[in-house]
Design a protein around this nucleic acid. Structure first.
Lengths: 156, 156
DNA sequence: CGGCATCCTTCGGGATACTG
DNA sequence: CAGTATCCCGAAGGATGCCG
């Protein structure tokens, strides 16, 4: 349980690395427990806001648009429990509580930037693929089934 | 709608880039529609398996452990609709259907490898943070509330 | 083999009201 | 201000059965 452990057992840079992991029987994808955390409707947004410096509860409530009191609290608790947020309570009256991201959370945020880049790069392509798919569904509804191997996809 | 568009409007390499995006009023995180896709319980696993070459429906059913027929079909349809999978039907009897990932999906997979790396690097730290958090909860249950600013987090 | 249709359960998450 | 507690709903997902 040493602290300064910044080594990754084996960096995965390419798909080949992932394949190798599979061969060795290990998991090449983020564990569900992690994905479920960031998959929640609010976790990432909270991390983004809290990465800009200490932020108070009510500030978050206003900034993270659409979040309910309940979900804000729940998500904050989970993130805190996972060591992604640091919660500081000032025992004043009225109470003041500040949240800010840990370095670990910032690293996750940076990793997620790759996903952001992907979506920015391919969002148009996804939209086009959907149009094609939906249109084919309609056409297929009128005509009979085709006799040749069917490939549905969008040209890249 | 040109095809060979491999340019990203603005590559996000650092948190500073993301901050800049925020200033300009743009979204620094992957859109929900994308996150929701990969957040599903099975999408990523399917992409991983299908990235190794054409794979048949029943093969997926056996490989992706725990998936139900229903969810496998649903997830495959969604991925296909988004242009992440290419579905090939051989009109033989009995029918044969093969799925394989598109280049776009492979790029997403590679982006997710960063998240995988993150979780491999920090999983122990997260586990430790949870233990600390849970232990503090118990201690706090017995004693009164503390009078000094409380910081709950794990040393990094 | 590769689905789709149906039913049912679980859980994330919203609305609202109360509290130290 | 910063929460907790309760109720409720819709969507995700599991189980099962039928079908071309």
């Amino acid at each position: 349980m040493s602290q300064g452990n910044t080594d990754v057992p084996g960096q995965l840079k390419t798909l080949a690395d992932a394949q190798a992991l599979i061969e060795s029987g290990q998991c090449p994808i983020p564990p569900r427990e992690i994905l479920d955390r960031i998959a929640g409707k609010w976790a990432i947004q909270i991390i983004v806001v809290a990465s800009r410096g200490p932020v108070r509860f009510t500030e978050l409530e206003r900034t993270v648009e659409g979040v309910s009191r309940r979900m804000l609290t729940l998500t904050l608790r989970n993130l805190e429990r996972d060591g992604m947020l640091e919660r500081t309570v000032y025992p004043t009256v009225p109470p003041k509580v500040e949240y800010q991201t840990t370095p670990m959370a910032l690293e996750l945020y940076e990793a997620l930037l790759m996903v952001t880049n992907w979506s920015r790069k391919h969002s148009a392509c996804v939209a086009l693929a959907r149009e094609n798919y939906d249109r084919r569904l309609n056409e297929e509804a009128s005509s009979g089934s085709s006799m040749t191997p069917t490939k549905i996809g969008v040209a890249m």
